[in-house]
């Protein structure tokens, strides 16, 4: 990549910012720092970062609010950083438009993996890929067909929609709410139990061992993640 990837790090802890900055050492990344929500909003506008790492516990504005405001005018990928035990904030931030989350403490490996997934979507082929492959499965979005071991899987319309939606956000977390309002419509936001039943059925068709899923992972209390890379 010729142009350096700009990463906006928003965290009030100088140590964390320093750690994140050092994680992105090298010429392909350029890290910009913000220590509060106001600065973050300003820098998000002026610097046009490619990825934002956003801590939810900010001194001035609530991190969820920051994500919401940025989403009003920008599709820049946002990864929220949360402390353990604040799952509600996490889900709220994801529903407000954040793209993924990392629970502190996390390893550099995890961080880089998440950022790469974000960049693949924005910097890589901007158009949605017509075919998504994971393991021995293949989802052909143009033909609306799903193959497993080269055989066409019989999915119900809802199962197909669920899978297609997760494929659109491949390797990113999708919340219950996102899935419900996309597949069933806005009125069904709270019917998580229906979602679970369909997910179970879908998993039984896709996975070799549904109790040890390789592709459709449950993120407890948050939603699901379709893993396409091993």
């Amino acid at each position: 990549m010729s142009i350096a990837v700009k990463i906006l790090v928003v965290d009030d802890e100088a140590q964390i910012r320093k750690f994140l900055k050092s994680s992105f050492a090298g010429t392909e990344y350029k890290v910009i720092e913000a220590e509060d929500g106001q600065t973050a909003l300003r820098l998000a506008g002026t610097e046009m970062p490619d990825v934002i790492l956003l801590d939810l516990g900010l001194p001035d504005i609530d991190g969820v609010e920051v994500a919401k405001q940025i989403r009003e005018w920008s599709q820049v990928p946002i990864i929220v950083l949360t402390a353990r035990g604040h799952e509600d904030d996490k889900v709220e931030a994801l529903d407000a438009g954040a793209d993924d989350y990392l629970t502190k403490p996390f390893s550099v490996k995890e961080l880089m993996a998440r950022v790469k997934v974000m960049l693949r979507r924005t910097l890589g082929s901007a158009a949605a890929e017509p075919v998504v492959e994971f393991g021995d499965c293949k989802l052909d979005l143009a033909a609306r067909l799903v193959y497993k071991k080269d055989e066409v899987l019989k999915l119900t319309p809802i199962e197909y929609k669920l899978l297609a939606f997760m494929a659109k956000y491949a390797d990113k977390v999708v919340t219950h709410k996102m899935l419900l309002s996309d597949v069933w419509g806005p009125g069904y936001d709270f019917e998580v139990q229906y979602l679970r039943v369909h997910m179970k059925n879908l998993r039984h068709k896709i996975e070799d061992e549904p109790a040890n899923p390789q592709f459709i992972l449950t993120e407890a209390g948050v939603g699901y993640r379709l893993v396409t890379k091993g």
Partner: peptide, 17 residues
């Protein structure tokens, strides 16, 4: 507690993965 009715298979799957 934020209790929900869950499938045992999914609970185990989540922990295992």
């Amino acid at each position: 507690l934020d209790t929900e009715v869950m499938f045992v298979e999914e609970l185990i799957g989540t922990a295992v993965s």
